[in-house]
């Protein structure tokens, strides 16, 4: 085995160049002032101080609110979907899982444009409503549109881990619970749900990560004024050109996500020990 360990070296070099260095650069940018060159570096914490301005705090709050709502909807819908998929035969299950993942094969941008076609004032949904004699509803550029875009984009990331952990459950555990007097509802909550928790946590972490840092979906479905953290960062780098402030926001976001994940893992472990 020993000489195989050498094979990992190219990967380590790759990881350092592609992942670690840029990360360090971002951290460096976040604590320096603009307009530095390689020789003259001016350190500052102003970038972080700016984040405490109410405008930006509001962006963070809105992002988290929207992200958590999307995660919540994904969890609810995704769990039910994953749960019912497990009732089918193995072959049907792989087909259904394939159906769940097919949207992931299509570019997010395209999928989001498809939603615009459906949700816009003269879009498919409103045309249908009018045909049925209802008033058209404005859906584009609202929280609703952004949420729909987010949920449809993130759902597979919730369904897959939950389905995997549900499939891993030994069926005799369900039988054991029934044998000991638990009806179907009790069996679900006391056994099935408990054993699917690792999948649920992974699903939450993945969808939360993706929803909190997205910028394409809120930009297209929420309109130009719609500002989430992702958009804020994108703006700093692309429109405003303030890479230092953009980096500071990125660092804070990364830090919050890291905290959230650690918290979740902690919860998972405690749950395991307690029970």
């Amino acid at each position: 085995m020993k000489h195989f360990t050498k094979l990992v070296r190219p990967y380590i070099i790759w990881a350092v160049v592609i992942i670690l260095l840029p990360l360090l650069l971002i951290v460096l940018y976040s604590v320096t002032t603009g307009g530095n060159d390689l020789v003259n570096i001016q350190f500052t914490l102003d970038n972080f101080r700016r984040m405490t301005e109410p405008v930006y705090l509001a962006v963070f709050a809105k992002s988290f609110r929207l992200g958590l709502t999307a995660v919540g909807i994904c969890l609810f819908a995704g769990y039910i979907l994953a749960y019912f998929i497990t009732f089918f035969s193995e072959r049907t299950q792989s087909l259904l899982i394939l159906l769940v993942t097919i949207p992931m094969w299509i570019n997010t941008l395209l999928r989001t444009y498809a939603w615009i076609c459906l949700l816009s004032d003269n879009g498919a949904v409103n045309t249908l409503l009018q045909m049925l004699g209802f008033q058209p509803v404005t859906m584009m550029y609202t929280d609703f549109a952004v949420l729909i875009g987010l949920v449809s984009d993130l759902l597979p990331f919730m369904v897959l881990p939950i389905h995997t952990s549900l499939c891993k459950i030994d069926h005799s555990l369900h039988e054991a619970a029934m044998d000991l007097g638990a009806n179907k509802v009790q069996t679900f909550w006391r056994v099935t749900f408990k054993l699917s928790l690792p999948g649920v946590l992974n699903g939450i972490i993945m969808t939360f990560l993706l929803s909190i840092s997205t910028f394409v979906i809120p930009k297209l479905l929420g309109g130009g004024q719609y500002m989430l953290i992702g958009n804020l960062i994108e703006n700093q780098f692309i429109s405003v050109g303030d890479w230092n402030f953009g980096s500071a926001i990125s660092v804070i976001l990364a830090f919050i996500i890291l905290l959230a994940i650690t918290g979740m893992k902690q919860f998972d472990q405690e749950e395991g020990e307690e029970e």
């Binding site: 030994d170 005799s172 555990l173 044998d179 054993l195």
Partner: peptide, 22 residues
């Protein structure tokens, strides 16, 4: 009659103990 209403209990082949409980 469903299993949970029977006055019968089972010891399963691979025990089927709940791994999350002590």
């Amino acid at each position: 009659v469903p299993p949970y209403k029977r006055e019968i209990n089972t010891v399963f082949q691979k025990y089927a103990l709940f791994p999350f409980l002590n």
